[in-house]
């Protein structure tokens, strides 16, 4: 077996993860999920522990631009992939339009599902700048919220989509 293509490690993995555009060296036990490494080893506690069964969406992050559940993704699998979490969304004090809309329209109440919901919505808007309410509901159907009744979340994503489109227009 050629060594160059197969990685062997003992007990702990040492690797570089790319999180929110930054390269970070980290060392962790190989059974750890991305969620655990983000929260426990990198101190990025914005991403939430929910059901840890892939049923609630609270831990959703973007990997190479696609929403995935960090509770089901082993961190060792993430070498060389771009990870985006809620911490990377605001530019300094400038909130992302999704964060602003969720705050303004009550899309976030207790807030526990919000990071996962916002990241899932970001993946949607990055690909589809003008989703219909039906499409938003469909794309967000893996994110369970016990407070808002969902209507405010859908409205928040619609408002943010409009803001992103306007910003795009002004920039060009």
């Amino acid at each position: 077996m050629s060594v160059g293509t197969v990685k062997e490690v003992q007990r702990r993995v040492h690797m570089t993860l790319q999180v929110n555009g930054e390269e970070i060296d980290v060392s962790f036990a190989p059974y750890k999920t991305l969620l655990e490494v983000l929260r426990e080893d990198l101190g990025l506690t914005g991403t939430k522990h929910g059901c840890e069964l892939g049923e609630c969406g609270a831990c959703a992050v973007l990997i190479d631009g696609e929403p995935l559940l960090s509770c089901l993704t082993l961190a060792v699998e993430c070498a060389g992939r771009a990870i985006e979490t809620i911490e990377g969304l605001a530019q300094g004090t400038q909130l992302h339009p999704l964060q602003e809309a969720f705050a303004d329209l009550g899309g976030s109440q207790c807030g526990y599902c919000t990071p996962g919901a916002v990241m899932t919505a970001k993946a949607l808007l990055d690909k589809e700048p003008s989703p219909t309410p039906q499409r938003i509901k469909e794309a967000m159907s893996g994110n369970i919220c016990r407070c808002t009744g969902y209507q405010q979340i859908v409205e928040s994503v619609e408002r943010a989509a409009g803001c992103c489109r306007n910003a795009e227009r002004e920039a060009t």
Binding site: G54, P67, L69
Partner: peptide, 8 residues
């Protein structure tokens, strides 16, 4: 399942 799970 859901979008996130279908992606994985």
């Amino acid at each position: 399942a859901s979008e996130q799970i279908r992606n994985a």
